[in-house]
Design a protein around this nucleic acid. Sequence first.
DNA 1: GCCGTGTTGTACCGATTAGTAAAATAGTGA
DNA 2: TCACTATTTTACTAATCGGTACAACACGGC
Lengths: 187, 187
Amino acid sequence: MPRIVAERADALPALAEVFREHGYEGASLSLIGAATGLGKGSLYHFFPGGKEEMAKAVLGEIDAWFEQHVFATLREATRPEEGLAAMLDAVDGYFRSGRRVCLVGAFALGDTRDRFAREIRGYFSRWAAALCAALARGGRGAAAAAALAEEILADIQGAIVLARALDDPGAFARAVTRLRRRYEMGR
Amino acid sequence: MPRIVAERADALPALAEVFREHGYEGASLSLIGAATGLGKGSLYHFFPGGKEEMAKAVLGEIDAWFEQHVFATLREATRPEEGLAAMLDAVDGYFRSGRRVCLVGAFALGDTRDRFAREIRGYFSRWAAALCAALARGGRGAAAAAALAEEILADIQGAIVLARALDDPGAFARAVTRLRRRYEMGR
DNA sequence: GCCGTGTTGTACCGATTAGTAAAATAGTGA
DNA sequence: TCACTATTTTACTAATCGGTACAACACGGC
């Protein structure tokens, strides 16, 4: 089995960047080819399902990253506040302190949502569930924890929108420190 | 001057809906034609600048609507809490209680932002400014008012993302009531 | 009725789209 | 070296893209 350097997974980061910047429809095969350095032949060799399979693979990798670095941390932290602080650190890093967009959120706003409804809903609902559980372990009632989890997620996603709209990453950074302070996870 | 039924402004609502659902790139002229009932000839007669002019017109109308129903209300309300309550009512109605997306926010997340950077930034910065002023008149310090205004905007935009992602308009409705309660504007 | 202007339908342009097919290349195990 | 297979290049669809040009149409003033 010829195993050169090329791996399907190697193309995923560049692929993700293209979808993030141009959206699903806007990510043309020529843009994808330029970003990944792969010709159409290679792309369809690795992703026989075309663009849809590429986007699904990207969503899968994003999901796995959050599962590992965010959801698991939230679930496993001995003290819930530590889990929340770790989540904010990971999120701040992942979204490049407001300079990077949430691909899942961007997909959710457009008509692309219907195509990847399962993946999008899974990402956010598992994030909300992990966050909710951590808040509940922190002593809050089930209802309050659920409401708070939703508010925190909305704050993060909204801050990304705002940072892009105002062209001011600071809007995202301020949201993160605001969240850190509110739940007394200051650093 | 022949003044039939057709007015350029008559096409704007349908036009806005197409851009909202499909994004700027995804809003093809055939989709636009189907939604407005106008052929290409008519569209380019009313909007010689093509899609870009159509989108600018839509953004302008949205801006005017918010200026009239949200920003002005925030500025003119005798008691600031009334202005905030009126804003939440207007926003809840405009976004169809979470079943409708914010076109400006959706544009901000994609590469369409660069094309309409001025309009997008203006919309959000004027909204933030009006909200900030109302909060300041309510007795908060300048810095606290600015931070709070940003948080409220992020909460609204993030709730729209969440509602779409989870396919649950309730996520938006809960955010609105949450905001109403927090600032004691219950109804 | 006619004229002029505002509106619309239609044919067309070159460019680009996603995707297919197959020939050519390159690396690996024997 | 050879055979086998993974990978890549290339050429090619058929459809659609945004946009242009222009002829046909509809209406109001006269």
